[in-house]
Design a protein around this nucleic acid. Sequence first.
DNA 1: TAGATTGTTAATCGATTAACAATC
DNA 2: TAGATTGTTAATCGATTAACAATC
Lengths: 255, 255
Amino acid sequence: MAHINSAKVPIPTLERLATYLRFLIDLEQSNVDTISSAEVEKQTGINAAQFRKDLSYFGEFGKPGVGYNVSDLQNRIARILKVDVDQKVVLVGAGNLGSALVGYPGLKEHRFNLVAVFDNNYGKIGKPLWNLEINDVAAIKDINQKLRARIGILAVPTNAAQRVADLMVEAGIDAILNFAPLLLRVPSHVFVRNVSFLQELAVLSYHLTGETTPIENGTSVSVKNNGNSDMSLLQNREPSPLSELHSSISQNLNG
Amino acid sequence: MAHINSAKVPIPTLERLATYLRFLIDLEQSNVDTISSAEVEKQTGINAAQFRKDLSYFGEFGKPGVGYNVSDLQNRIARILKVDVDQKVVLVGAGNLGSALVGYPGLKEHRFNLVAVFDNNYGKIGKPLWNLEINDVAAIKDINQKLRARIGILAVPTNAAQRVADLMVEAGIDAILNFAPLLLRVPSHVFVRNVSFLQELAVLSYHLTGETTPIENGTSVSVKNNGNSDMSLLQNREPSPLSELHSSISQNLNG
DNA sequence: TAGATTGTTAATCGATTAACAATC
DNA sequence: TAGATTGTTAATCGATTAACAATC
């Protein structure tokens, strides 16, 4: 009956949607064609009611008494996330990280189509990077006038990040994947997602030395465990479909 | 009065702590030596009460009527997160991403000391990678018996990730930074943090085409905005101190 | 049909934020 | 002292989960 729940969709729901998508792809490869929310919980650690609730924001996906059709659900989630169509992406920052990203086939595999790379280093501008040529970031607006990419990956040093973000916005980018450790100021129509990792390391570091760690004046603080105990399926926080960033090693570690 | 709040510390609090730390470092470099929670809110977008509450899990840090001493607070947060001392780190997966990480000076700068790199590719084992030599991942337990690293970075393809995680755990690693898009199964004493990015791109992708996007059968769904509107300080989600992953371009984009 | 499992409502849990007495 | 700002308690908000009628 109820069609689309037009309430706002929580960000954690969107994040989990990406997780479900990955999981469903795996299932399909294992030739599973139907799955129940209970089975999803068993295999991913994500609560069955959570799974159903997440989906309920977007419509009805399952058959009572039966479950969900794996490939159908996969397709519909892909459509919801708009990863069922190619999305043009530009990248600024042709350093170590930028290069690793440009050479990462997972982007194309997930229909993120890198259409241009930029840097401000005259030693790099004009040089090839994998299959692309490095452009002057000063020309990003001009160049993107034609390309019309809306997603930008920001892989520059912190001190350049805000400046580059401004250029991106000017160039029509309204979704930024930010690898720099700062709070970007952007107009309200622009979405930003931050990819951390030193932050993640700090969180891991905090947890070192077991359940109880001496802190401050010797008193101890323990940490909330997200309810996952024992050989837990789930981790301390959300699962995170990434896909081999490592790509080029892809064949190696299994060869 | 009240000393250490020995209640569990929420993970979002730990994440923000890393953010505060970065912010404080910036302040110190700007020669600010005292800051109030109200000013923190103005500059970072993080609610002042949130800031005070986060700190309250660990003790008292400010002076009523005055605020917080920047360098003192910085040191104490670093101590809480245990980033005030060197932490040994091993990395598995000497591909594009792994290499970018090994060559990334930000790790050392943040006192994460990469002490060994592993791969399973015989073409790579024995070869140098920056200042390290690539070891056979099969020897990780032996090698880490001496090194005693407790943090492991997992930068291998998805299909190898669980296997490598098992090896890491066997080798005494109890904190894993996982770049692979899967839910690792680990014993309960092991902490895992996932670094995503295709997932983040998917969340960005979802948001493309403005406030209202046609979804499913043409009905529309709008998205919760986390309360940040207008030229927002804050983004759609947590800030994320990363530090230039891009490192090698560090000098470039500002030269 | 009886059994299974959905979609959704209601209850619970936890995190964020406002309010304010304590205090510098 | 008066003004400012803390640390913390209480109120609010939102997300997770349990429960269950609808339904295949």
